[in-house]
């Protein structure tokens, strides 16, 4: 059992939880993920790590309610326990393995969309710890759905917030901000984009045109998360990869996004999609299979 030390709602349907998990906290790196099960019967839900505290032995996760499993999770409070919490899974972000001298020479851009802001945070924080200030674009549907703004501000070089409806910060999609920044004369050596599949697809399309190498973090359907089931297979540069062990980060210019988006719909029934549309209303931010 894994104790929840903190639980709070960051925005409508988006929750943050800090969980006691000594083994994971000791070894995890930015870019890796965990799998959580709420109770004995629960499904295995993969979530990218948002933060960790090695001394305290805790790992922080952020999730959005997208189905029955995450709905159940959201009901848990500080002091409650997760039945299972396993990790750290997947490979660390490529940045982690780069020599510090090389990193310091680089101009890095992060593009975060919606709840994808959470997995971007530990990478930016890690870089700041190495004395590297990265630019970060955070996109949200609307002002109320913006998460981790203050936290990100504290670790980013420059933070650019944009909302689809213009209710806060810049107005428009994250791709617009990328374009604007480059037109303003910014130069980036590498871009890391994490968010809804459709966002990553369009960021990659743009950065390819702009000639900026781009890394994306994929969150396909998974069961075990250790390479056993193959549910998470994605085609990257014509080769089949398992996101859980080969990823979750891949060269965004080589990912077959259309196939990945189709595979994400595998277990989404017509009724499920309708229910999701009803429930999420204007807050809808991809992943339903309707808008992919």
């Amino acid at each position: 059992m894994y104790k929840i030390l903190e639980a709070r709602e960051l925005a409508a349907n988006i929750y943050l939880m800090e969980v006691e998990a000594q083994r994971i906290a000791k070894r995890c790196q930015p870019g890796q993920f965990i799998i959580v099960r709420t109770d004995e019967e629960g499904e295995r839900i993969p979530l990218t790590i948002c933060d960790y505290d090695r001394e305290k032995g805790t790992v922080t996760i952020v999730f959005q309610i997208v189905g029955a499993g995450t709905k159940k999770m959201a009901k848990l409070q500080a002091g409650d326990y997760f039945h299972d919490f396993v990790g750290p899974l997947g490979c660390a972000s490529e940045l982690v393995n780069e020599p510090e001298e090389e990193l310091k020479k680089k101009s890095i851009l992060f593009v975060a969309g919606g709840v994808g802001t959470a997995p971007v945070y530990p990478q930016v924080k890690w870089l700041k710890g190495k004395g590297v200030a990265a630019d970060v674009i955070v996109g949200a549907k609307t002002k109320d759905l913006l998460i981790l703004e203050k936290e990100m501000e504290a670790v980013a070089g420059n933070l650019y917030v944009t909302t689809d409806d213009g209710s806060y910060g810049r107005s428009g999609m994250v791709t617009q901000t990328v374009k604007d920044l480059v037109e303003e004369g910014k130069h980036y050596d590498v871009c890391i984009a994490i968010g809804p599949m459709i966002m990553m697809k369009f960021v990659c399309k743009l950065t390819k045109e702009l000639g900026i190498p781009t890394v994306v973090s994929l969150n396909p359907i998974m069961v075990d998360g250790t390479g056993m089931c193959g549910a998470c297979r994605v085609t990257v540069d014509g080769e089949v990869k398992f996101a859980c062990v080969d990823g979750p980060e891949f060269d965004g210019h080589k990912v077959d996004f259309d196939q990945a988006m189709k595979r994400q719909q595998m277990y989404k029934t017509a009724e499920g999609r309708a229910a999701l549309k009803e429930e999420e209303g204007d807050t809808h931010h991809g992943g339903c299979g309707n808008c992919g």
């Binding site: 499904e43 295995r44 089931c229 549910a231 994605v234 595998m266």
Partner: peptide
Amino acid sequence: EQANGVFSANEYLTRSNLMK
């Protein structure tokens, strides 16, 4: 082979057996 509806036996059986 990446089409929806193609599974490894491992995935199919794990879903049914481990995850009930």
